[in-house]
Design a protein around this nucleic acid. Sequence first.
DNA 1: TCCCGAAGTTCGATTTAAATG
DNA 2: GCATTTAAATCGAACTTCGGG
Lengths: 348, 348
Amino acid sequence: MVTIRDVAKESGFSSTTVSIVLNNAPLSRYIPAVTKKRIERAAQKLGYRPNQFARSLRSKRSHTVGVMVFDMTDPFCTLILRGIENTLYQSNYLPMLTDVHNEGSRFERYLEMLLDRRIEGLIVIANWLFLDINLLADLEKSSIPIAMIGCELKNDTMSSVIVDNEVGGQLALEHLYSLGHRRIAFIRGPKGLTDSSPRWRGIRNLAKQSGMELDARLILDLPESRDPLSSFESGCKLTEELIRQKRSFTALLAFDDMSAFGAIRALTKAGIAVPEQCSVIGFDDVATSAIYTPSLTTVRQPMESMGASAVGIVVDGINAVLEKRDVATTHRKVAPELVIRDSTRNLA
Amino acid sequence: MVTIRDVAKESGFSSTTVSIVLNNAPLSRYIPAVTKKRIERAAQKLGYRPNQFARSLRSKRSHTVGVMVFDMTDPFCTLILRGIENTLYQSNYLPMLTDVHNEGSRFERYLEMLLDRRIEGLIVIANWLFLDINLLADLEKSSIPIAMIGCELKNDTMSSVIVDNEVGGQLALEHLYSLGHRRIAFIRGPKGLTDSSPRWRGIRNLAKQSGMELDARLILDLPESRDPLSSFESGCKLTEELIRQKRSFTALLAFDDMSAFGAIRALTKAGIAVPEQCSVIGFDDVATSAIYTPSLTTVRQPMESMGASAVGIVVDGINAVLEKRDVATTHRKVAPELVIRDSTRNLA
DNA sequence: TCCCGAAGTTCGATTTAAATG
DNA sequence: GCATTTAAATCGAACTTCGGG
């Protein structure tokens, strides 16, 4: 290990001067160019790399941001993670990745570990969240900037980035409506998910606006479950049930892409062609949607930019703390986007 | 910030004693239970948490492992990451996640950042890898335990975990053969991928064994590309081409699941039902495979356990370094597993 | 000699205060 | 006072050495 003292010795200056020069500290403007050259050359020659532990100990900074995912296997996460990673990279932070597996004990343990390592900010991806809200209260006392993606909390200590679910719901129904569909089946989200009710509200609003009436017998609810895969299975089962009851509908609006895939599976198995005999629309635009057969029309959450946005909020917060400014908590609601693919079509 | 000195003051003992007690150091066996109790209570009361920076500076340990992904959006990664995360958690390490985006400059920069932070080990997920091999040479000088997943290098400084591609290829063809298929189309992997040739070798071997002859006109190659999604698109295009040429085949063996999805898309669009008129088999068993319509028969790479295995190797390596034992580089080749779903069936 | 506890040093970089000409 | 440089203190924990009973 080559230390700053080695560079000092090699260059013939004190470690103080070396530190000042290599960090381009304010004082370095008094230091003549010759000295700088000599020091830089010595550092280069020895291959000096400052010890981050020592640096962090002194500066109290880790240049690390914690990322807490509630379930990595949820396809919703991947692109968000990509957005987070990419934006952190640009800001010179590195992410510590933790996956809570939707378990309270794991949440607490990881939170402790992250805090022990003095992360400077925290990003929580909490889309598929069935944890006790009280647990999240633990987050508040941490006094570092926090941004939650996919879940907005009432309190004022955490920022959030969510998609505008109401607009999204509207967009989805509007699309089906514009294609001429009137008898539409709905798979709603589980009650426990914060996304469910605003999304449904958007749907109801649009229905009212356009004078459409919703048939209660065509409205189904996904059960609560911690497993993102269950969304697929439930979507499949609910649709099978619908078919078995011989309910007639020309389109199906699913809570998310996973349940939409389940619906397509059920329809296809029953010999009902998608989109020829029944249109299906999802929500999220997970990676699978584009490669599905048929490719899925859906309402996209701009996941990558949501991740980037969360990083922006957290990094701003970190800077605010450093400059002793107030940390403002922000609540961003990003616009969803209709992505039209092959699973929906005009009512013949 | 409450320091060890605060605990010392509160408990009435010196910081030395506090350190010994709280770390359960060897010397602590001389310390009477009363003292321990008093110290522990004081620590508890003040909410003392040792400063990891100071600790790391002294011990030269970070309890951190670097994870380098070449492309997060590759669905192959997700489950591996889960396996890594889960196993690290059990061993009390935290992962620093980096995504190289298949770019050389990013690779170098991230490697530096990770090394600066004194990661104790490194795991590289290099399945879809088109980087200059010379870059990887940079890894060798780092002198920390390294495990690569999905790519085996000749040299002796890095461990690796890969699937047995040859057996996998065999398994796939064997399955189609046992279903009675003889006229089979093949989509091979791009030449630049290390997986491609052993997988094909397995196929050829089985063909020879069972006296099957492969029709060169039914053998296609995926082009080189850094984008995992291109596998899907190429799979689709190649299959369309095959159909347009009116080649007859009753089954298609794809290089991976993504290209298999592409093939299914092309077949379906051409009005060829899968599996009724053509069976399709993939490789990997990515998350999408189970929820596809039809669900995909494939050769599974045990990704979660491959991730766990890599962590095991690296953690062993770390311990070896600590105990000044030799670090043995290991090369694990894990067995693939045939997963039969709905995309293949008996030749009528 | 054994047990218990404390003083002081170390890890490596940053920063304050101060010393040169 | 100014430009240039540095000794010494600091960050917080852990370990080495030593002393008293």
